[in-house]
Amino acid sequence: MNIQLKHPVAKLVVSVILVLWGISVLYPLLWTLFDSLKNNEQFFMNAPWSLPELPLLWSNFSYVWSKYNFSTYFVNSLVITIGSTVLALLLSATTAYVLARYKFRGSNALFLLYISSMMVPFVLALIPLFFLMNSMGLINTKLGLIFVYTSSLLAFGIFVLVGFFKSLPKELEEAAIVDGASYYGTFFRVMLPLSQPGLITIGIVNILNIWNEYIVGTILINDPDQYTLPVEIGVMQAEMQYRTEWGPLFAALLITIVPVLIIYIIFQRQIASGITAGAVK
């Protein structure tokens, strides 16, 4: 049982602060929606917090979707996010399993290598990555971005999954081996299904990170056909200096936000446990 705050005044003050902060978080989302339904005139003539006038300009969304090519960027983001999340899960789960269960020469050093890489600033790799991707012909390609993102997700995945595999009882594998399962059979048919909660947690955290990523995308992609959503948002806002289309800009923001909000609402618990798992270094 929790101890209640004794003073009603203290409780009121705390409640007010909580509500205010809640508003500061929710209101920008609401106003993004409102502003996505306005035209330029309303932006310049009315107060920023005014409601959109009727008729609501839902056309801003279709305008952004087709004229600004958001249909393309949305698909690009989707392909890149799913591709790198799946690839990263496969590559980190396999290594994590071996590191958790098998001793071999250098296994500790390998684990340390992955963990310590989380301390190294990724900006350090930006310049060489640009030239590396260029020389491999992977600049301006989804595949190139998938490879770089995957690699950036490995350390976190290995770190969390090694802990997860270690927490699973050894008897299950031993039983599988006795039943004649091969090493691969044991991993793919017994261990991988058992580690599903861990995989989902990491997968969701990775999806959010990749969907929202901006810097690497900006550097490795210059071809507008290959932009991801955040990259295009950056370009669009820079263009606002000479071509003011506020309504469409807010519609674009909403298109970018809504998918992660849906994922957040569904997988809240996994996201919270992903955070706590990743932070206990």
């Binding site: 978080v25 929710l26 989302l29 959010l208 969907w211 929202n212 990523e213 901006y214 959503l229 955040p230 948002i233 950056g234 923001l253 970018t256 936000i257 992660v260 909000l261 994922i263 957040y264 996201i271």
Partner: peptide, 9 residues
């Protein structure tokens, strides 16, 4: 919620 939104946004 702000943590799941892209920093660009």
């Amino acid at each position: 919620i702000p943590n799941v939104i892209s920093v660009v946004v």
